[in-house]
């Protein structure tokens, strides 16, 4: 990374290193919670809260945690914050809690959070890690929202639960269901790649030990050609 200003740490999550469309992390919640705009927004904010907190704590502890057991340590820290967010939403936003269901608990194993802990927070100062958390969280939320808007407006003919005249009579139902999610996601990644002309950094330049398929994933090992 050539630019190191605090601003670039914050902004890079939005498009150039967007966690969803460029780094392709956290695919499961991206697909599962974008049926409705509200669900996507809630998921984005919940993940952002966990991401900022865990980034700060992991950055604080980066010199204390032994290298060999760092992944279990990160997971426990993240799971702790996820539990806090879960309890908070259960108490104050029960409808959203029911809407997100199991995916709220699954923020624990969301590769964005573990990935950022591994790639960024374990190597950078607290302030920069917090900024990274905000930037990546915003990028994640925006990506979820852009998918949810497409899926809800054209799939269900409404926006955040409010029906849109005309479109609501001509909905493409499949968009709100599983195949539509994968399709919209594929097309959006295609659009972002085309917009950035494939210049966005490849995944391997970040290292992706935090990702569940690290080591076997084609974009990490560069084994694509074999």
């Amino acid at each position: 990374m050539q630019k190191n200003s605090n601003l670039s740490v914050l902004v890079k999550g939005l498009l150039l290193e967007n966690p969803v469309f460029v780094l392709v992390l956290g695919t499961c919640p991206t697909l599962a919670t974008t049926q409705t705009v509200i669900g996507a927004f809630a998921m984005g904010l919940a993940a952002m809260a966990v991401l900022i907190c865990s980034n700060v704590v992991i950055s604080l502890l980066r010199k204390v945690i032994p290298d060999t057991v760092r992944i279990p340590c990160y997971i426990v820290i993240i799971a702790g914050f996820v539990t806090i967010v879960q309890m908070f939403m259960h108490a104050y936003l029960p409808e959203l809690y029911d809407l997100l269901g199991v995916y709220l608990a699954l923020i624990t194993v969301n590769c964005i959070i573990l990935g950022r802990a591994e790639m960024f927070a374990s190597k950078n100062s607290v302030a920069r890690s917090a900024l990274d958390g905000v930037g990546m969280g915003l990028g994640f939320t925006l990506a979820l929202l852009s998918m949810a808007v497409i899926r809800e407006v054209f799939g269900a003919g409404s926006f955040a639960g409010i029906a849109i005249p005309f479109i609501k009579d001509h909905t493409i139902d499949i968009l709100t269901q599983a195949p539509g999610g994968l399709l919209v996601y594929g097309l959006l990644i295609f659009a972002v790649t085309a917009l950035t002309h494939g210049k966005a950094p490849k995944k391997k330049s970040f290292g992706c030990e935090g990702c569940p398929s690290a080591g076997n994933c084609m974009s990490c090992t560069g084994k694509e050609e074999n």
């Binding site: 539509g180 999610g181 994968l182 996601y185 594929g186 097309l187």
Partner: peptide, 22 residues
């Protein structure tokens, strides 16, 4: 096509497989 290579085309293919499971 160039920009569809890799993940985008994989996801679109996954969408059809998922459709089959319907």
């Amino acid at each position: 096509p160039q920009y569809l290579r890799g993940l985008p085309v994989t996801l679109i293919a996954a969408s059809f497989v998922s459709l089959a499971f319907f």
